[in-house]
Amino acid sequence: MSRYVRNRLLWMIPTLIGIVTITFFLTKLRPDPVAQMALGPEGLKDTSGAEQYLEELRRHHGYDKPIWQQYFIMWKNVLTLNFSTSRVDHRPVMEKILEALPYTLGLNLITIFIVYLISIPLGIYSALHDASRADQIITCILYILYSLPGFWVALLLLKYFAGGDYFDLFPLGGWRSDGAEQLPWHLQVADLLHHLFLPIVVSVYGSFAFLSRFIKSSFMEALKADYIRTAKAKGLNSRRVVYVHAMRNSMIPLVTLMAGLLPSLFGGSVIIEKIFSIPGLGKLAYDSVYANDDTVIIAEVIIAAVLTMVGILLADLAYAKVDPRISFDKDEAH
């Protein structure tokens, strides 16, 4: 176990090197980032003084240095978590990201929690009533939900359940009402949930199908195992066999699935945060793309990738913890 943990932690180093290197190549996609940023694609090339101004900008952002030096500057930025300043409002990039991070993280954690909370009973029900009418209807509904484009659903929900034309049940967007910080804490939580209800609905529903399907097949496999037959033969209560013996073992793979959900959740939050104007990482990315704010975009790509890397690591470690067989297999495989 400890050897596995150590190996797994050591593997983070090449992964981090890869992330930073790929991101560095990304920044080189734009031939002259400063010129485009300052003067637009065509530029004011013929204006007197433009050349000199560009030169100054290039020096200021470090584009005049040789490539290897720029690469090391990026490493320095990553290791000190200090990504110079935004080109739009000249605030430190890290400050902007740290400000946005809790919103995205909070939204994603609630989303994952609710996805699991609803998918697990659905999957178990489908497994116990395989190919029944109810199972078919559940599968069909989940299928339709899985294929509904999130941004379309978000627009429809906003139109019919927020704002006031049809049902004025939810606010149009944002994170909390004005002056909410003066309320007692339980009302603050209620206000928060009121604001987050629609965004969470939109980010949750698409993952049900995938997860509950997975739980169904894993549960059905567990029900066929020898130890279940033994438990039944022993004369144990069949409810106990199903809900204790089979369930425990079929839930193990769910831990790693969490790792698979993470990158898509970070990405999916761009559209949800934009539509519901939640000031998280996705909204920040969207705004920076629109403002041509390279430093923020690049820093955000790195931070999001590193966060995902850590998330996958945690899921792997948790997996090894709950299922001792796995870590052994994994070490063998490499």
Partner: peptide, 28 residues
Amino acid sequence: DLLLSRFIEIVICFPTMILIMAVLALLK
């Protein structure tokens, strides 16, 4: 296999939507 698998794992770390947006912001 070892090297390529690592490479795949590195690319998986990048959230697709944010990566796509970043590339499209830098390119036209």
